[in-house]
């Protein structure tokens, strides 16, 4: 079967963020920025989109007088990610058939 890919996840940077967060408890914004090689501006926009979709939780606080943003994946995010991977598998099977 040909499944529709979740448009929120089918974007390079948003998928990179989700794939990074799926295996860890939480990560600081600077860590995600470093691992995805994204610019701070673009990353902020994409993180906001993931947050609006309810896929990630964003925590803003202060550490040594500097603003600190940490992100973690939500239950809804995990489910969406798993569904996305299943849909991808469907695409790959279609390709090979």
């Amino acid at each position: 079967m040909f499944k529709e890919l979740d448009p929120i996840l089918h974007s390079q940077l948003r998928l990179a963020v989700m794939s990074l967060l799926i295996g860890i408890k939480e990560a600081e914004f600077t860590f995600i920025k470093e691992k995805t090689n994204a610019t701070a501006g673009n990353l902020s926009v994409q993180i906001q989109k993931l947050k609006d979709a309810g896929y990630i939780e964003v925590n803003k606080q202060f550490k040594d007088n500097y603003p600190l943003t940490t992100c973690s994946i939500t239950k809804k995010g995990i489910e969406a990610f798993e569904k996305y991977v299943k849909a991808l598998q469907g695409y790959l099977h279609t390709d090979t058939n």
């Binding site: 390079q12 998928l15 794939s19 990074l20 799926i22 295996g23 691992k35 995805t36």
Partner: peptide, 17 residues
């Protein structure tokens, strides 16, 4: 990007984490 690109990206990021 294609389904194959997606799989490669997921794998790369999971390995980084």
């Amino acid at each position: 990007f294609s389904a194959n690109d997606s799989i490669a990206l997921i794998e790369e990021m999971i390995n980084k984490a």
